[in-house]
Design a protein around this nucleic acid. Structure first.
Lengths: 341, 341
DNA sequence: GATGATGTCTAGAACGATCTAGTAAGATGG
DNA sequence: CCATCTTACTAGATCGTTCTAGACATCATC
């Protein structure tokens, strides 16, 4: 049971018959070592099973090449994005440390626990803190999902307007004329999606009927309630664009349990294309925010921010069409399906 | 934009007019400082906005009181448990560092990145590595979800047998006599649930019909296929216990899309009581693994393992009854009309 | 008054890496 | 042959903590 002490650089140096400093050079892959000794040091390190100690490295080095990621453990889409961040960071030579926030740990606590570890930059998913406070942090910050307004805060977000346009054009081409929106209340991303919806509908007075916004939120229960209210509308919309997938699932439940078939009577479009979108009873058509692209852009933005350039990136989304959308069964449409991109 | 250097212990020491060592004592809350100076040091630290540097602390101290948590970012129940681990660790004076595994990072890599950081112990959710390899790691390991067989690996898991018994007794009491099991293939936890099911059914030959096991997996598609096969059974079971909630959702979809109402024709029980169980079209009755208890036990097991005691804990689960289970409407021994709506 | 227990505080050496400055040896050039 | 540049390497300081050993009072005990 006595565990042998973990080998250090000094051990490798002794094994290879060189100085600690040279081992450091070789391990980092830095210039300044001869080809023969480099091989000898690497072989010694291998033989001893040496791994650099992250604590010491973090403490001493000026560039730790470590990115801190703050995510909300309760947000289903957050964890998906975190999964994409690992490869994105790795290919750019960065490491990643996570800190989760949620009921037990505030975003503020998560941020500071990462700063204490000496991360070079922070990637915060859906930050709650105002941009100006983020700008005051001692390391550059990349705000993901929420576009930043402050010049010293970088941001990477999905192009919400483009996403809404994709969904609305899809419904329009299917022949829908009366399209409602179940919004996300004050959740991150709700406001831009709502205004994109309003602008889309009101800019096409000939093609589309006036906007119908049902105020909801990001939870399943919000969707259920909104779905119930949708059914009470005097002239029921033939399609509905919902704030996100979880909420859309609620709408779906409300419709189906009230005997309104989807998509025959009402088409439903979700947002996020989270894994549960495909899991729904009627698989959801949903706007895909391109997680891998968002992740790659976030790491690149962190890299640029470390060089002093604060980018503001918008990633164009795509639309994943599944079974929850179809041609409306009522009235004056027909043979609209001709248009395709 | 010039960020002021982060204050160190030396700064606090100078501000309070004491030595660095004393500041260390006060900050750690260790014994050996006078009441008056303790207050003075704390006030100086507060004034400068001092926060201890985790890197240096980790590097130097023998007891870092840091637990490394390895979880699978793609497992929906894993992230839920991670959320419970934060408060569990905090109340016991531990900190937590996460490392995710998944497509981009193997469990092995995740483990070693945490070891490089100097964690005192590892909590691994559903370890893939054999126990004997885990026992050889330089820090104690707590295996969560998978009971350990090795004496030098601690483990905390849900009592699968008790969970299956809860579900089966529930169905039995509702009047079901022919109960099938859709299993999880080779997923973690599948084997004990399957054998608990087999034992339960075969130990009650008078009350229950012989076991029907449909081999599946942990994915939605596995559930869909198993659900389709269930409908082809010569004598269709009136209830089915499914490996986990995701898979149960698949079964549910297969049943509903084939016009078999749940729970009127077939009752469905899931496992995990994940948040999506309540999100289903027909909310799932599911076995709850008591996440907060599992998390608390995992941290306590890590604590005990650090003291040399390797515990093997089983947490008793509970059953959350929702709409997917009900009285069977066909029965050799029951009247037909009883269960119809 | 010597002796030992405290209780409070400090100097300085770790921890294991990186970084700065500098040395020694050989190559290049006039 | 001397000056200079490059290449390969090393000694020792340094990052910000914790830890060990000990100093210096104060106080009780013999």
């Amino acid at each position: 049971m006595t565990q042998p002490r973990r080998p250090t650089m000094a051990d490798v140096a002794a094994e290879a018959g060189v100085s600690r400093a040279l081992v450091s050079i070789v391990i980092r892959g830095a210039a300044g070592a001869g080809e023969a000794t480099r091989a000898r040091v690497l072989e010694a390190a291998e033989r001893l099973g040496y791994r650099p100690d992250a604590r010491a490295r973090l403490l001493r080095s000026s560039r730790s090449r470590l990115l801190g990621v703050v995510f909300d453990i309760t947000g289903p889409y957050h964890t998906e994005l975190v999964g994409h961040l690992y490869p994105a960071a790795r290919t750019r030579g960065y490491g990643i440390t996570l800190s989760a926030c949620g009921r037990a740990q505030s975003q503020h606590e998560a941020v500071h626990s990462l700063l204490d570890l000496g991360v070079e930059a922070l990637i915060i998913l859906a930050p709650e803190t105002p941009d100006e406070d983020l700008a005051r942090l001692p390391v550059p910050v990349v705000s993901v999902f929420r576009p930043a307004t402050h010049p010293d805060v970088a941001s990477v977000a999905s192009d919400e307007r483009a996403g809404v346009d994709l969904a609305m054009n899809h419904l329009l081409q299917l022949g829908h004329r009366r399209i409602a929106h179940v919004d996300g209340g004050d959740a991150v991303g709700a406001q831009p999606r709502r205004s994109a919806y309003l602008e889309f509908t009101s800019s096409r007075p000939g093609e589309l009927e006036p906007p119908v916004v049902l105020s909801a939120g990001s939870e399943l229960s919000d969707g259920r309630e909104a779905g119930a209210r949708l059914l009470e509308e005097a002239r029921r919309p033939s399609a509905v664009l919902v704030f996100n997938d979880v909420c859309a699932l609620g709408v779906l439940q409300a419709l189906l349990t009230n005997g309104v078939p989807v998509p025959e009577e009402v088409s439903v479009v979700g947002y996020d294309d989270a894994s549960l979108a495909a899991l729904a009873h009627v698989p959801l058509t949903s706007v895909n925010q391109q997680g891998p692209d968002l992740a790659a852009a976030a790491v690149e933005a962190a890299d640029a921010a470390l060089a002093g350039e604060f980018r503001h990136v918008l990633i164009p989304p795509s639309l994943t069409v599944r079974a929850s959308t179809g041609i409306p069964n009522t009235g004056d449409h027909m043979c609209e399906g001709a248009a395709s991109h």
